[in-house]
Each structure stands twice: as structure tokens, then as C-alpha cells.
């Protein structure tokens, strides 16, 4: 198993996140006692601890704002529309498809998808400040005169605090749920606990991968197809960690037509086809695909052609004569993994 451990959250961030989480839970529980909506704890105890927790959170926030400023991490919260629609589409539809990955790949530098950025921005510039301001106003109610604060309407201040507290509860519920929206479900929780995101680059075992073979030699094509389809039939003989569907096409024309409508995960391309020959075939395919990896199958040991093939954007070329099953499947797997990486 090949894994990539990527540090997403530094130790301070994790300390901040989890201590803040505990404080917010405690503030919600004690706060709703103060409003009278909960009555499990003694009122005085709840009111007292609500204040202690609030002051602790203010301390934590002071440090954290400072931390964000000096590390430049505050940029993580600048709103962005990049992939916004894809993310919205993903959460509302794509998420139900176990085969689909989140369109936004999290990295150390870009930790938040555009929806997260927006949510956290609203949280940190609207909900939290309003909670703090109304909470502090409430706490220092008796000192309004001395502090030069105009005589506000106390129950209005309290109402703002309570309204924002409800907003915070809603955020909290959604936030906790969305922690488990990763694939697998606990991936994000693990990352927030350990700091590392384990990137499984073996490809997604739950998904069916489509490999397109463009080859006019039907015997050869049948052989390749068999190689791929017997992959994993025997557990010890599992070179590709995923299930594969083959799409076999004989002409460039049909291949281009197919690729115009659908995407595939890997293209095995013979350059010499009935309707096209040489590098031109590769060029035609490259012009219609997005970023699918292409492995070129060629019969000739022509260095000039080989370097042209690479230059045109194919991942690799394979000499048909030297090909064996194991070799081809491994090359196919690496090509797909490499392509996944390049996408990041």
C-alpha cells in the first residue's frame, strides 16, 4: 500500500480547533441554561462557567488572531469563487455518488474549499463578533456609563446574543456532520486529530475505472482486454487495485467521438489506425481530452518518434513487442496515479 502523509493542520491549529470546540460546546450548554431553555445545571454555576469559558475563549482567540496574522494563515479565509459551482454541485448531488471525489483537493496551502471559506468568513466576521460584542456588552452592563457606551436596550443586546447563539448551534450541527462527509467518512476527523491527511494514491477502490483501448488489431485488442479483465480475479494477482471496464475502439474517428461525450480514466492508444497514422493520431486525441492520461502503444523503436510522443503530452510509450500483462497493468496504474497527482 502506498500512502502519502500530508501535514494539513499544525499542532497549534489542532490545539486551537479542539480547545475552541470544547469551549463552544461548553458555552452552548451553559448559555442555554442562562436563557432558561436548559435546566440541568444549577443556574449560578452555569452563569459563572459561561463567563469563565467566554473569557478563556477570548484569550484563545487573541492568540489565534495573532497566530493567523504572523503566519499569514488569515489568507485561508479570503473568499474565492474558484470551483464554487462544482463544490455546490458536489454537496447537493455528487456527494451521493460514492464514485465521485470531492472536486476540491485540500492542501496545506489551500485548506478550505470555497464554500468553507465563505462559511468560516461569515462565522468569523458576523456570528462570532456579534456574540462577543453582545456578550461583553451584557457582561459590562453595569459599567456602560463609565465606559461611555450609550444607553443601549439591554434586552435587545441579549436578543442579539441569543439569536447568534442559535446560529452557532446550527453551524455546529452542520460542521459536525460535514466532518464525516470525507471519503472515507472518518478521513477528515483523522486529519484534524493527527494533523495529517493520509492520501491514498492507490486510486479509489470503490470506483469502477474506464480504460479506453484504441487499437485496430482485434487479436491484440482482445489480449489487452483480457489482461485488464482478469486483473483481480485472483486476489494474489491484483496489479490494478481497482475494477476496470474496457472500452475498445478501432478508429480514431470513433475514439474522438466517444471522448467528446464521455471522459475515461486511461487511454491506451495505438498510433497506427485505419484513419490516422503516427503522431497525428496522438495530436487528435490530445485535442479532445481534458487531462486523461494517455499511454501510447507503438511497434517501432524510433527514438525520434518516442520523444515526439512525450512532447505531445502522452505519459509514456510502450513497445508492443516487449509488452507483458504485468508490465502494462503497472504502467496503467502509475499513469492514472501520476495524473491524479498532476491534477493537484
Amino acid at each position: 500500500m502506498e500512502e502519502n502523509r500530508q501535514l494539513l493542520f499544525s499542532r497549534y491549529e489542532r490545539f486551537w480547533h479542539w480547545s475552541q470546540a470544547l469551549l463552544i460546546i461548553a458555552l452552548m450548554v451553559t448559555g442555554f441554561h442562562v436563557t432558561g431553555l436548559l435546566q440541568w445545571l444549577d443556574y449560578k454555576l452555569a452563569a459563572q462557567w459561561h463567563r469563565y469559558f467566554a473569557w478563556s475563549l477570548i484569550c484563545l482567540w487573541t492568540f489565534t488572531i495573532f497566530w493567523h496574522l504572523i503566519t499569514g494563515e488569515w489568507r485561508q479565509y479570503i473568499p474565492s469563487t474558484e470551483k464554487m459551482l462544482e463544490v455546490i454541485y458536489y454537496y447537493s448531488k455528487g456527494i451521493f455518488d460514492p464514485n465521485l471525489q470531492h472536486p476540491f483537493k485540500v492542501t496545506r496551502r489551500l485548506k478550505h474549499n470555497p464554500l468553507q471559506r465563505l462559511t468560516y468568513l461569515v462565522l468569523s466576521v458576523v456570528i462570532s463578533p456579534m456574540l462577543w460584542i453582545s456578550g461583553l456588552l451584557f457582561f459590562y452592563y453595569n459599567e456602560w456609563d463609565q465606559l461611555g457606551i450609550p444607553n443601549l436596550w439591554l434586552s435587545g443586546v441579549a436578543a442579539v446574543h441569543v439569536a447568534m447563539a442559535f446560529a452557532m448551534v446550527c453551524f455546529f450541527c452542520l460542521h459536525v456532520y460535514m466532518v464525516f462527509l470525507g471519503k472515507p467518512a472518518t478521513a477528515q476527523l483523522k486529519a484534524m486529530l493527527t494533523g495529517y491527511r493520509v492520501e491514498d494514491i492507490r486510486l479509489d477502490a470503490d470506483r469502477e475505472y474506464t480504460v479506453m483501448l484504441v487499437e485496430d488489431d482485434s487479436d491484440f485488442a482482445r489480449m489487452i482486454q483480457e489482461w485488464f479483465e482478469t486483473n483481480g480475479v485472483n486476489e494474489t494477482d491484483r496489479i490494478l487495485p481497482v475494477r476496470v471496464t474496457m472500452v475498445c475502439i478501432e478508429t480514431l474517428h470513433e475514439a474522438v467521438k466517444y471522448l467528446n461525450n464521455k471522459s475515461v480514466d486511461l487511454i491506451l492508444l495505438d498510433l497506427d489506425l485505419p484513419d490516422s497514422r503516427g503522431v497525428e493520431t496522438l495530436r487528435s486525441v490530445m485535442s479532445v481530452i481534458r487531462d486523461e492520461p494517455v499511454l501510447v502503444l507503438t511497434g517501432e523503436e524510433d527514438e525520434n518518434l518516442q520523444s515526439m510522443i512525450i512532447r505531445e503530452g502522452a505519459q509514456e510509450f510502450l513497445i508492443k513487442e516487449n509488452l507483458d500483462r504485468h508490465h502494462l497493468l503497472r504502467k496503467g496504474r502509475f499513469a492514472m496515479e501520476r495524473q491524479w497527482f498532476l491534477r493537484q
Partner: peptide, 19 residues
Amino acid sequence: YLPGRKNFPLLYAIGIGAV
């Protein structure tokens, strides 16, 4: 203004509804 009384029944209803 006495916290702990049901001071804002409408707000509580909206808030609980939202949750």
C-alpha cells in the same frame, strides 16, 4: 431584563426551529 425568563418566545421558536 431578567435572563432565564422566557424573554423572547418568538426568537426561541425561530432558533429552535432553525436547529
